[in-house]
Design a protein around this nucleic acid. Structure first.
Lengths: 323, 323
DNA sequence: CTGAAAGCGCTTACAG
DNA sequence: CTGAAAGCGCTTACAG
């Protein structure tokens, strides 16, 4: 900017005015400045500008994996909202590691992002206290924060899993296997709870032999299904706790003809005729980002918790009686 | 930092030294400073720091859609490389819009990112000239840049499509339909070229009636297949130009029993038994980011162009003679 | 309509 | 081992 001022023969402040399209600049002067800008290929340094103004017009997004279809859908929605507010998005993957989550969050804070949308991997978020106090917006998505009062957007995991399990029960299944993530993960624990609720409501016993937590790979799913098939009273249906578990189960099923319903919709689930309990990552992202920008716009209400509904989509894999 | 210095009763510079873990600070002083930092919840402002040092330890990534599985895989790979180099990633979606691409790129430049990985939507990248001259690293991925000499990582689209089409031909197909994106998109044009090459090499005529460009939605695919089925000499096989076209074609096929092979692998393609020509988005991202950080480390060689191979994965949908 | 001075939060280069 | 001064590239607040 100094160089531009020199070349145009004006003061720094005048260049600043032209760049910011502030009124009250002689048109002829403005033209001279713009020519100099063009000639020098000058681009304003946003970092320097924002050092004064306080805001960085950027937000940080921490998700489990930017490459995962569910979270990348969420990202897309956050991006859209951010863009509408003139904000850029730093995004990073925690990989379900609390240490990495903290690193990322603090790196974003050090860049002085205006706000943060976080899918928490860890349980402890007290370290965000100073940021919150300093006016940074923080919204947790998909899972609640550990020990920090902040806006949160969740999905009705329990209700969805309950509905999916009840759906299988309504077709006459009494032995329903559960394949899903470790209950150390909030959403998995909630869904397992929904599964148990549906069983209880139907007067069915909860049988730990039918529960495979951590069975989200093909190998693990196969092992679990092999074990369960060998039971005296094997399952006739499966409820899978997330998209990865569903695909793993489908791969592992082989010739077994169990009914199946799964949590999470995925792109060609319709082609596979898989019945799912769908959650909406785009709506999740929209809602979380909406909350964040409302805070940044000055909303000072108490922290909110929003719970989004799920939707059962019957496609054939679940709608059959026990073989 | 000023507040910390005040509270600890030292000069600004001493706080700076402690924060940067520079040697030569009295341990007792350091402890006092660290206490003040803790008490105040102080976090160094990276933006201010980098204003002096020049580097921002961040890069920008422009892809077509952060929510698309192919590009989000690329993102994940770029993130991993960036992380290894201590860099954060701004990411944004161009939505195949050259104007939006330019906006994003310039917004990243204004934030003074150290480098850029761009999947170009537009044809003109001369506007990046000043940045390149100023030492910013720029790598184009998936598609070549318009009119700027910069590192580029591509996929062997032509060779892949040629191999996929030849695969269908090897099973006796002579009438092979093409469903894909508009040839205005570089990768689509290249793949169409590969399809034509395979036909020519087999002595088969190129029939425009069998080519549906823009057929990447279920409706468009259905319309195209309806039209082609009604031909006097209908196709017996389909080659789809990308993942979306493959899924659209599968949805549109209905009772028609065409052989099918498609460009792009997708998550449960194995469950659907779909034969694909797979490209590797993770490798694409790794390679592009690797090139970028090599530049940032001082590599001054002439711009490179790297072309990555594809891999044909037979899964059943293509391996059958004409009905 | 235009500009000189001070300052955003930090580091660099130098002095003690 | 510690600090006062200048400056990174910009804006704010004020004066002319």
């Amino acid at each position: 900017m100094k160089d531009v001022a020199l070349l145009a023969g004006v003061a720094l402040k005048t260049v600043s005015r032209v760049v910011n399209e502030e009124p009250g600049v002689n048109p002829a002067t403005a033209v001279r400045v713009r020519e100099a800008i063009e000639r020098l290929g000058y681009r304003r340094n946003e970092g320097a500008r924002l050092l004064r103004s306080g805001r960085t017009a950027s937000i940080g997004l921490v998700i489990e994996d930017v490459g995962d279809p569910f979270y990348s859908g969420l990202f897309r929605a956050v991006e859209d909202v951010a863009r509408r507010h003139g904000s850029l998005v730093f995004a990073g993957s925690s990989g379900e590691d609390p240490v990495r989550e903290r690193e990322l969050v603090l790196a974003f804070c050090a860049r002085r992002v205006d706000g943060l949308v976080v899918v928490p991997a860890g349980e402890d978020h007290a370290y965000l206290g100073p940021e919150l106090a300093a006016g940074m917006g923080v919204v947790f998505a998909d899972r609640p924060a550990g020990n920090l009062a902040a806006d949160t957007v969740l999905v009705d995991n329990r209700g969805g899993a309950r509905a999916g399990t009840a759906h299988l029960i309504s077709y006459g299944h009494r032995r329903i296997a559960w394949l899903g993530d470790s209950p150390a993960i909030f959403t998995a624990a909630e869904r397992l709870r929904g599964y148990r609720t549906a069983l209880a409501e139907a007067g069915l016993p909860y049988d730990p032999c039918l529960v495979a937590s951590g069975a989200t790979t093909t190998e693990a799913a196969r092992a679990a299904l092999d074990r369960m098939s060998a039971l005296a009273d094997p399952p006739t249906a499966i409820f899978t706790g997330n998209g990865r578990a569903t695909i793993a189960a489908l791969r592992a099923l082989g010739p077994r003809r169990y009914a199946l319903a799964g949590f999470d919709d995925f792109e060609p689930a319709d082609l596979l005729g898989v019945t799912v309990v769908a959650q909406d990552p785009v709506r999740l992202g929209h809602t979380a980002a909406g909350l964040l920008f409302a805070r940044l716009a000055g909303d000072r209400d108490a922290p909110r918790e929003i719970v989004l509904p799920t939707r059962l989509i019957p496609r054939g894999s679940a709608e059959r009686p026990p073989a």
